[in-house]
Amino acid sequence: MLELRLVQGSLLKKVLEATKDLVTDANFDCSATGFSLQAMDSSHVALVALLLRSEGFEHYRCDRNISMGMNLNNMSKMLKCAGNDDIITIKGDDGSDTVTFMFESPNQDKISDFEMKLMDIDSEHLGIPEAEYHAIVKMPSSEFQRICKDLSSIGDTVVISVTKEGVKFSTRGDIGTANIVCRQNKTVDKPEEATIIEMNEPVSLTFALRYLNSFTKATPLSESVTVSLSSELPVVVEYKIADMGYIRFYLAPKIED
């Protein structure tokens, strides 16, 4: 028996919008820790890891660990039927091949339930080791989104370099080149507007902008984003989900052929 009641149902709607274009099918894992997901895109270049901790739910009942295979496009279709202010409850029974999403309007005058078919997904779970990163950049998520979008109109890849000067995003394409440098800036009104660069060692890595642009669909989940870089490691782009957990995207770098 599984019953998870999320008062801020819009979070789940936003999570689906952030993941459904990257991953088609995924197993949602439910345990005492929380509701989680780990899935790779079809080309095994990018990975999404989601955690919504059990404490973040108003009611969290998960009698035993359960994995539910869902088609994210279909799940998104169902969650789009929930209002932004609705409370969402996820219900499942042991051995059942369906999951139920229940939506309650804030004043309880409308209650809907949508039953979705589950699927068997043979997913590869990767072990992601804890790593020391050479540089960690925290910046406003809207700024990161803007940079990725702007650069993708010029080139297909971005070189992200962190030095003591700041973080530089560079691209080149048929029409020319572009460089955007963001310097550390802590003198802002709100902490989420700050750009904070922690650098242990300078680092420079190349990534496909197509994937980074896809990651920025998580922007509505958090006002700031953390980009962790280490040479010879996939970049981690993390959006914290207030009081609940995170959505992290991993992307393998491109190397000189």
């Binding site: 790779m40 080309s43 095994h44 270049v45 990018a46 990975l47 590869e124 779970h125 990767l126 072990g127 992601i128 080791p129 890849t157 190349t206 496909a208 010879e232 490691l233 996939p234 991993y250 393998a252 770098p253 491109k254 190397i255 000189e256 052929d257």
Partner: peptide, 14 residues
């Protein structure tokens, strides 16, 4: 030219 690496080059199976 740049070659796209795969995640399996970095992360092992659990």
């Amino acid at each position: 030219t740049c070659k796209q690496q795969k995640l399996s080059a970095f992360f092992g199976c659990k």
